[in-house]
Design a protein around this nucleic acid. Structure first.
Length: 424
RNA sequence: GGGGGGAUACCGAAGCGGUCAAACGGGACAGACUGUAAAUCUGUUGGCUAUGCCUUCGCAGGUUCGAAUCCUGCUCCCCCCA
């Protein structure tokens, strides 16, 4: 199956600048394409997976991907899809972010495979060179404000209440120039991005025609949204990051395991490389035996392995097996330490166990509840577990018999909030 | 500059002298049911040394036995007129 057909059945092809011509054009020879990433943090998050995987699909189909990190444009802020003016990042923070993102991309794109090796570029390398006057003369001259005003991203902001600053208004020119620069430097001819990037992509194509007299291509994919309308990759507690330091492999795995049935099919198509046949059989299984949650398991497995490697996946699955298993007992400190590496913990003196440590105090200090009053309620409601065993005695005291390992007790509130108590 | 309205817990929003730690809705957190899903149902949602005590209704004062509620001043927000 060729790349376009693959994208199509996955539902990843939203718009393209040349529906008919694209397929033969890509089939003819290896092409160079790019997608941009915003360095708003020192790690990518789940939202970046989709474009990154798309680059990867193209790479596996024999094309050369370029991941562009917006070191320069990140200082401006893309108005597309945003209702308010962006906060600007300072250049030091930006450099740090770019570095962090670069290492993460290496697990997804192949940077050492000969002619189709992925490239990582930073647009501050060329945009930073420009003087304002030069930029206006060489690039700005090619833009019609009338056309720019008509672009969706700009129009929305002008018609909305927030308005748009001159800075963000100019964003489009920078991204358009990126495309032209990559075309000149690397022969890049195709830009891919989310559907909110359409205006920026076509701006780049126009500019390419004017400045380089070349025909460039662009395609967009749908934005990945959840069936309930909320954003993929965000939870109430925060963003799901690709960095193991920010989101542990276990948490990452768990995020996908709990994917709603309604979203699972879409996620499998958008975010995995499973074959059509397998995905369709997972669809069927989800219909007939939803409780087995095969789709969610495959999804979590694929993505955790991709982002955190085989070792990360192992850790996540191990932790899952124990945490969602039966009562925890006869486990070693070492095992416990690995499984609960990212779980908050509190340390106490071992002697406390002799007279007994009041459970309410323990869960409060471990951070499972905000106050003792809340802790009291939680126990009354039956939402507190010691070593995965429910305890509903309000004045329960932890003693030596509650140790799950040599020195630790595992506390849990609700389904999946854990804390470790260490007694040394 | 003139006139009017408003500020209440995570958010929205009632309350307009005592029975107010403050209705109701949303959210959140739990429990039941399930499949670590969705939907549904139930409970909880200021703190504590806990049948009581303490701190909260924009800020600072005041009236009163008693104030989120009344008065004075201040700060901020919205609307109308200039």
């Amino acid at each position: 199956m060729d790349i376009i057909a693959d994208l199509k059945w996955r539902g990843l092809l939203y718009q393209s600048t040349d529906d008919a011509g694209l397929q033969p054009w890509l089939a003819k020879q290896s092409r160079t394409l790019y997608s941009g990433f915003d360095p708003t943090a020192d790690s990518l998050h789940v939202g970046s997976l989709l474009p990154l995987l798309n680059l990867r699909r193209f790479q596996r189909a024999g094309h050369r991907p370029i991941a562009l990190v917006g070191g320069a444009t990140g200082m401006i802020g893309d108005p597309s899809g945003k209702s308010a003016e962006r906060n600007l990042l300072d250049s030091e923070q930006l450099a740090q972010n770019v570095a962090g993102i670069a290492t993460q991309m290496q697990s997804i794109l192949d940077f050492e495979c000969g002619p189709t090796s992925a490239l990582l570029v930073n647009n501050s390398d060329w945009i930073g060179q420009f003087s304002y006057i030069d930029f206006l003369r060489d690039v700005g001259k090619n833009f019609s404000v009338n056309v720019m005003l008509a672009k969706e991203s700009v129009k929305n902001r002008i018609e909305g209440d927030t308005g748009i600053s001159y800075t963000e208004f100019s964003y489009m020119l920078l991204q358009a120039y990126d495309f032209v620069h990559l075309n000149r430097s690397f022969g890049c001819e195709l830009q891919i991005g989310g559907s909110d990037q359409w205006g920026n992509i076509t701006a780049g194509i126009d500019l390419g025609r004017r400045m380089n007299s070349v025909q460039l291509y662009g395609i967009t994919c749908p934005l990945l949204t959840k069936s309930d309308g909320s954003k993929m990759g965000k939870t109430e507690t925060g963003t799901i990051w690709l960095s193991a330091d920010k989101t542990s492999p276990y948490q990452f795995y768990q995020y996908w395991i709990t994917t709603a049935d309604a979203d699972a099919g879409k996620c499998l198509r958008f975010l995995t490389e499973l074959e059509q046949e397998e995905i369709e059989s997972l669809d069927a299984a989800r219909e007939s035996q939803p409780h087995l949650r095969e789709s969610q398991k495959r999804l979590a497995e694929f993505l955790t392995q991709l982002v955190h490697g085989e070792a990360g996946l192992q850790k996540a699955q191990n932790a899952t097996a124990i945490l969602f298993g039966a009562e925890i007992e006869n486990i070693s400190d070492v095992e416990l330490g690995q499984i609960f590496a990212d779980v908050p913990s509190a340390a106490f003196a071992k002697t406390l166990l002799d007279e007994g440590l009041v459970l309410i105090d323990a869960i409060a200090q471990a951070g499972l509840v905000k106050s003792k009053g809340e802790g009291r309620r939680a126990i009354e409601e039956g939402s507190i577990y010691v070593n995965n065993k429910r305890v509903s005695i309000t004045d329960y005291k932890l003693t030596m018999v509650d140790l799950a390992s040599e020195t630790s007790i595992v506390l849990r509130k609700g389904k999946r909030n854990y804390a470790i108590l260490r007694f040394e």
